[in-house]
Design a protein around this nucleic acid. Sequence first.
RNA 1: GGCGCCGUACCCAAGUGGCUAAGGGAGCAGUCUGCAAAACUGCGAUGCGGCGGUUCGAACCCGCCCGGCGCCUCCA
Length: 494
Amino acid sequence: MLRVYNTLTGSKDPFEPLVPGKARMYVCGVTVYDYCHIGHARSALVFDVLRHYLEYSGFVVEFAKNFTDVDDKIIKRAHEQGVSCENITAKYINAYYEDMEKLGVRRATLEPRATEHIADIVTLVDRLLAKGMAYRVDGDVYFQVDRYPVYGRLSKRKLDDLQAGARVDVDQRKRHPMDFALWKSSKPGEPSWVSPWGPGRPGWHIECSAMAMRHLGETFDIHGGGMDLIFPHHENEIAQSCGATGKEFARYWVHNGFVQINQEKMSKSLGNFFTIREIFKESEWSDVVTGEMLRYFLLSTHYRSPLDFSDQSLREAKGALNGFYDLFERLNEPAPSQGVADQQMREATTRMRQAFVEAMDDDLNTPTAVAALQKLRGETNKAIEAGLSGEMRRAVRREFRTLGAVLGLLQPDSWQFNPKLNPKRVGEAVSVEIEERIETKVVLSDTDIERDLAERNEARKMKDFTRADDIRKYLARHGITIEDRPDGTSRWKR
RNA sequence: GGCGCCGUACCCAAGUGGCUAAGGGAGCAGUCUGCAAAACUGCGAUGCGGCGGUUCGAACCCGCCCGGCGCCUCCA
């Protein structure tokens, strides 16, 4: 049974959904005013994996992930560029879909937008006003935090502590410094909707409460997002939701850790920011390969731990994945109908599947789950060595595909031996790091490589091994590895 | 000032009270190969930042110290 770390309780809690067999989750999506960075990628991937694993475990998953499409930053960006807010949000929603597709992150089953739920938001604010948990100041409406007695239960903070730490100028019209806006009156030129309190727009936190309740009900199972959302965003969501309904809001609060650069949080001020599209653009590998490298890298650390992004870590992910795809090539080779290692392979597969499930059950321990796949890779290679039937080979490949699918890995039939997946920037010079030196190589085209390979095989037939090895060395300098097969043919990979 | 996290081999990274401290990458040696690649076999932390303590027993619990980081303000 799956156990997830619940920020609310501070412990790994068994996942028991409200409705048996059904898992309802809401994840805070992005504010669409800029391109997504690798941190967004991590968050999106973590919850995509959680969803996959819930499905693998037999749950029907209802998964809502919102777009925040009305917000100060969007308005600012629109003003800067002299375009409408819709212009900005449409552009970055599109970019988001492109990036996520390359990462292999599926769309949520529901993708609500704040601007499409103004009526729900107004109703919710009204409820809070009626209950005396919110108050009006001019055209604004604020949530009054001291009317919600357990404010701070998610982030484990006390209102008094927060007051002491407040560093921001406090709006004097607020009754308590931590009161936050549910509804903001809009200035001229800002997006605006009619409301009982005058023209305005929703505050940041209220949209998630309204959309989650609308689509998943007043109480649902999982609410997720990045660590940084614990306070104040999720804290405020809880306060206003529970305040309005008197019921529990989300039952499990799941938060992912940050991506860092050189042990420091990524931030625009430090200039250590990598957008997803930047990484794909600069990768020397095709999008399919780069996407899988990124996923492997992001899942090789537990989702709650900080994770340091670097070129080296991506390269290591590539190296680790190569082993799997080398194995899949081997599994495709001709095999006997009876294998002496079949039985032992069957047992190893069962063992590894159990290890995989056990790891994922333990708060989505993807590093250990990946280790189980690696272990199975070793066992399979050994079994092939000993003799593995064709039928068993196909069964093992299916197993890798099934378990890999939970993590979004190991799906392509072929990888490094599939020329279609690899060539990129043909004819261009790229920098490669070889033994801590940066060298330049030219990316060869497939036809160039095939031609050289044919020439080399001619030389080999003539026993001109000097010539053959020269060609091998030449290709090696350009990052091409040749594999000679027992039948005399050769294949190559980048 | 308040709250919290991390420090495991050359690198990445599981493990959080009890069999020989997972797994990957890199490395070295061997088998195989015309040479390679891949694969296989073997090697690699007597120790888990340091020092104390609790315990029959600790990388895992407690205390102190050292080093690094996050949140308290928009942020995945």
